[in-house]
Simulated assay, not measured.
Amino acid sequence: MSNRKKLPKNLEKLSPDDFMLIPLLESLKLGVNNFAPSNIVDYLKIYHPTKFDKSHSLFAVKCHDNNLEPKIYKNDIMIIHPQQTAKFGDIVAFKTPYSITFGKVIDVGHVGFANKKLKYFPGAKVDLGIVGRVISVRRIL
């Protein structure tokens, strides 16, 4: 009889080849190519990307402030799925007239975004300017 513990049936064996590399960007800015080589700091390995085909263009950005606490802390790495829609409660990257920033999707009369320093309501029937949704966070201890 073996002393090895049996793995749960729903636990899959991961292939070492089942990963994708995504760019870690220095920042997100309006009016520039954010994927220019000068803005790519590193590449992150995402293992077993079951929800996302390897052709998806995920990217990552380091959180540079504490505006998203207690969910996301300064220096956490946010993995972003580029998309223009989100649900209430999602944390997204969005455009303001002056920058691209991160906040939680809220609803106070009409859809808006908020973080510790900013509440932004683009207006009714206006493009919300969502750049992408935070799908995962890597905490750097």
Rank of each mutant, 00 (worst) to 15 (best):
M20P: 02
S55E: 12
K45C: 09
L141F: 10
L25S: 10
N10P: 02
T101P: 07
G89Y: 11
Y98T: 13
S136F: 08
K71A: 09
K6Y: 07
L21P: 07
K104W: 08
L68D: 08
G31E: 07
A114T: 14
M1C: 02
V92R: 00
L30G: 02
F52P: 00
Q84N: 15
V32S: 00
L11H: 09
N34Y: 01
K116V: 04
S38M: 07
M78H: 05
F113M: 00
Y47E: 14
K117T: 14
T101K: 00
K45R: 13
K104R: 13
N75C: 03
H81T: 10
I135C: 02
I72E: 07
N67D: 15
M78G: 06
E69F: 04
K104S: 11
Y47G: 10
G132K: 00
V126T: 15
F88P: 09
A86C: 13
F94E: 04
M78W: 03
M78A: 04
G109S: 14
L14R: 11
P97Q: 05
V108W: 04
N34G: 04
F113L: 01
I130E: 03
V41N: 12
F19K: 10
D18A: 09
D42Q: 14
L28P: 06
Q84R: 13
G123C: 09
I79M: 03
H64I: 14
T50N: 10
I46W: 02
S15I: 01
D76C: 10
V105P: 08
K9Y: 01
I140K: 10
Y73C: 11
E12Q: 11
Y73W: 13
D107F: 15
D90M: 03
E12T: 08
K95E: 13
N39A: 05
V41M: 12
K54R: 12
L11N: 04
I140P: 07
K87T: 11
I80W: 02
A114H: 04
N67K: 04
D90A: 03
K116C: 04
A124W: 07
E12C: 06
R133M: 14
I106K: 05
K116M: 10
L128H: 04
P8D: 11
K13T: 12
Q83M: 13
G89E: 14
K95A: 10
V108R: 13
P97G: 06
